[in-house]
Computed example of a mutant assay.
Amino acid sequence: MRTSTNPELTAAWATVPDVATAQERYTEAVRLRHSFPSGATPAAALASVQDEAIATLTATGKWPADFAKRAAKAHAEALVWEAEATALRRAEDMLKFAAEDARDSMAPDVLAYLGGRLDEILTSAKDASAALGDVTTADEAIDAGGDALDAWRRLTGLVADLRNVRAAQWDVLRSVSYSDEQARMRNWMAEGHGEVRGVRLDDVPEHVKGAVRNQSYGPAQLVWLAHSGAAYVPTSFDDLEAHVMAATEPISHNDSGPLYDYSPRVTPEPAPTPSRVYAHSNMPLIDKSKERGVKPKPNAVISDRDEATTVF
Rank of each mutant, 00 (worst) to 15 (best):
W152L: 09
W152M: 07
R153C: 09
R154W: 07
G157M: 00
A160D: 13
A160E: 13
Q169C: 09
Q169D: 07
W170D: 12
V172E: 06
S175M: 11
S177R: 08
S179H: 14
D180R: 15
E181L: 11
Q182K: 13
Q182V: 15
A183V: 10
A183P: 00
M185D: 08
M185K: 05
R186I: 13
M189G: 11
A190P: 09
E191Q: 14
G192R: 06
H193D: 11
V196I: 10
G198M: 05
V199T: 09
L201N: 15
D202Y: 04
D203A: 15
V204E: 11
V208L: 12
G210V: 08
R213W: 02
N214M: 05
Q215K: 12
Q215E: 13
G218M: 07
Q221M: 01
V223W: 02
L225R: 02
A226V: 02
S228H: 05
S228L: 11
S228C: 04
A230S: 13
A231F: 00
P234N: 08
T235G: 11
S236P: 00
F237G: 03
F237A: 03
D238Y: 12
E241Q: 14
E241H: 12
A242E: 14
V244S: 08
V244N: 03
A247N: 07
E249N: 14
I251G: 11
S252E: 14
H253W: 14
H253R: 15
N254C: 01
D255I: 12
G257L: 00
G257N: 01
L259K: 14
Y260G: 09
D261K: 06
S263W: 12
S263G: 10
V266Q: 10
T267F: 13
T267R: 11
P272I: 01
P272F: 06
T273I: 10
T273N: 08
